[in-house]
Design a protein around this nucleic acid. Sequence first.
DNA 1: ATAATATGTTAGACGTTTCTAACTTTAATT
DNA 2: AATTAAAGTTAGAAACGTCTAACATATTAT
Lengths: 222, 222
Amino acid sequence: MASQTEENYLKSLFLLANSKGEINLTDLSKMLEISIPTANSMVNKLHEKGLLNYEKYKPLVLTAKGKKEAALIIRKHRLTEMYLVEIMGFGWEQVHEIAEQIEHINSNAFFDRMDELLSFPTIDPHGSPIPDKNGKISWKSYDKLSECKAGQTVKLAALTHSSSDFLKFLNSKGLSLGLKLKIHSIEAFDKSMIVSYHNHKQEQFSQMVSERLLVETTNPNL
Amino acid sequence: MASQTEENYLKSLFLLANSKGEINLTDLSKMLEISIPTANSMVNKLHEKGLLNYEKYKPLVLTAKGKKEAALIIRKHRLTEMYLVEIMGFGWEQVHEIAEQIEHINSNAFFDRMDELLSFPTIDPHGSPIPDKNGKISWKSYDKLSECKAGQTVKLAALTHSSSDFLKFLNSKGLSLGLKLKIHSIEAFDKSMIVSYHNHKQEQFSQMVSERLLVETTNPNL
DNA sequence: ATAATATGTTAGACGTTTCTAACTTTAATT
DNA sequence: AATTAAAGTTAGAAACGTCTAACATATTAT
Ligand SMILES: [Mn+2]
Ligand SMILES: [Mn+2]
Ligand SMILES: [Mn+2]
Ligand SMILES: [Mn+2]
């Protein structure tokens, strides 16, 4: 239905809406690395197709239909990333570029089979939720490591950013999802943390890093 | 480099050249289901790009560069088909449509990994050769079953056509590549054959069928 | 050899997606 | 409130891939 280009716009609109409140043309054009007038003309087109609510000079808001289409593309993207890591043996830093292309493949059977071979995963290799076949996402609320206290033990659950460079950095520190992290101390001045985890007695994470790590706090009340 | 559209043209030109002698615009436009003027304009473009030798009103002939590019796309197509069948469990009648899309994915790592997981296959699920990374194809010469004699025992090695309908027909007859076929008799009038094979004591193949089956004759001289 | 048919080319148009340049509206500063 | 800056819109153009209609060339049949 939607062209590859339209799909990329929908996906960006969806992702932007979930990280910022109101989306404007400037955000969209930056994310897609296109000029503002180009974004403007596509926005008009998506509006005419009933995928986006839009009035001149007002923020961009996906319709229910637009949100669902977007979520289904993100589903294909994240299923693909999971497949590439779990079945094909790629590193989590290698899969985004490939998934960016495969997400546009038109074949239910193909993605259903991936899903099956992965035993119906709910998160991708970076801890982001995989929307279900109806485009529904079950959001889990994680805490940023940077907002935890000294003494806490937490589990690394997801990432706020998944650039290849950041993922390579995490590899170099022996970090992967699911690891238990113990927070030993937090430097008041720069908020850097001293943490320990499997095979790592003492590592220092700058705030830049701890802000990008999402953790589950093992709640003693449950 | 080449767009998805250009890639599909190159592939068609390559495949046509290997099944007919001289290719003309009409053949090309039929294969791609586009109008003749559209094919004509793309032919001019490919010529300008040095992928096709072309003079007005003359047959279409790929250059060495064009042939190599085409072979590498066919490599991706056939590797994908093999992967879908062998690793993902699809039937040989289901994979062409998906491969038609995945062949345009730009990622050496992705196809190299498929290749590796398949242990570097040389034929696809329909018995067609997979070009190597340099675009070289090692052609094997098979015989059409229709040209074999009564009494011969041969091995089903490949197909001349792989339409989904034909593949479903073969499924219904319990036929797959590698099967040994014994030719019991050939009806002189319509060239239909009575053959037997694993779990099938007696099946009749019309000439329409036997022409589409390529076999290896187990040569007693070797 | 002429006529009929098949094949190929050119011209002109359209939808998509992109751009830059010029202009307008809204938001932020002073 | 007036000015400046940021954000958004419009106009006009280009490349790509497609089409139909009209015309030209090559091949085949009579
Ligand atoms: Mn990704
Ligand atoms: Mn994409
Ligand atoms: Mn195929
Ligand atoms: Mn294709």
